[in-house]
Amino acid sequence: MKKTKLAAVAAVAVIFCALGVVFGSKTKEAAPLTTAMAPTSGAAHTASTNLYARTLDDLAGKPQALSQWKGKPLLINFWATWCGPCVQEMPELSAIADEEAAKDANKRFNIIGVGIDSTTAMSEFAAKHKIKYPLLVGGMGGTDIAREFGNANGGLPFTVLIGADGQVRKTYLGKLKFDELKADLAGL
């Protein structure tokens, strides 16, 4: 009798596992949460002003003033080496940066990555992958920067599109949908 019950329980478990696989594979990936910050009558958002007032180290340990990207549209991607979706989207972000750089020396926009990680982990990652845009070390303080742009829970990846005027055009929480991003970049 015990063997019959055990076989029945095992059969039910197998059925539920199969149903989970079938329905799980048909579920669409959740779209990233995109938002726009309220317009400020042409003035830069406070978060952008605060961003451009900061200095972060690059992977070589050299301080980089974020003000060097002021005055041109900027796509800033907050990421970490331990974040699967972050790592997955970086090659395509790198391809976009490479395409933009190839168009001409006066790029329409810049891309930078702010790692919520250690310099060592980021340097090892950069040595392994060929990223075509600047990577800056934000450490845990990078989460505070992302929070200023509305990422209250510090989720990653988190990307912010800032116009040349300092206005935040859009924020993206979660893995980027590149068709949407490319359309947003084309609209700058």
Rank of each mutant, 00 (worst) to 15 (best):
S118Y: 03
N77E: 11
T120P: 00
A60F: 13
E92W: 00
I131T: 06
H129D: 04
I76M: 12
M122P: 08
G20A: 13
T34Q: 14
A44W: 12
E89Y: 04
A65S: 10
F125C: 01
A8K: 13
P32A: 00
F125S: 06
N77D: 14
W69P: 07
L135R: 01
F125A: 00
W82T: 11
P157F: 00
A164N: 05
S94Y: 00
P63I: 11
F158R: 04
A18Q: 03
A80L: 04
D58G: 10
E92H: 01
K132L: 04
A38S: 13
P73E: 06
V87K: 01
T34H: 13
T40G: 12
R169Q: 13
R54D: 10
A31Q: 15
V22W: 15
L93H: 06
D144I: 11
E29T: 15
F23V: 12
D57Y: 10
N153Q: 11
D165F: 04
Y52C: 06
E99G: 07
T49K: 13
G139H: 09
W79E: 05
D165R: 03
Q167T: 13
F78W: 09
A146C: 05
S67D: 12
R147C: 02
D165M: 01
P85E: 12
H45E: 13
D104R: 11
I76V: 13
G163R: 05
L51S: 13
A186I: 08
A8V: 14
N77S: 12
K72P: 07
A18N: 01
G71I: 08
H45D: 12
F178E: 08
R108S: 01
K130T: 09
E99I: 07
G115R: 00
L188N: 06
A121F: 01
L59E: 07
D117R: 01
G113V: 00
K70W: 00
M37W: 15
S41Q: 14
G155L: 05
N106F: 06
D98E: 14
M122Q: 04
E92Y: 05
D184V: 05
S94C: 03
L156I: 03
A101W: 03
N110S: 12
A80I: 01
A11G: 13
N77H: 10
K70C: 00
G71N: 02
E89F: 08
T40E: 15
D144Q: 12
A43K: 14
V9A: 14
G138H: 07
C17Y: 10
G139C: 07
V160R: 03
I111M: 03
G150C: 09
A164T: 02
Q68T: 14
E99L: 10
F16W: 14
S123A: 03
G163T: 00
K28F: 07
S67C: 04
L56K: 09
V22K: 15
A127M: 08
C17H: 07
A11W: 04
L74Q: 09
S48A: 13
V168A: 08
C86G: 06
M37N: 14
P134N: 08
A36Q: 15
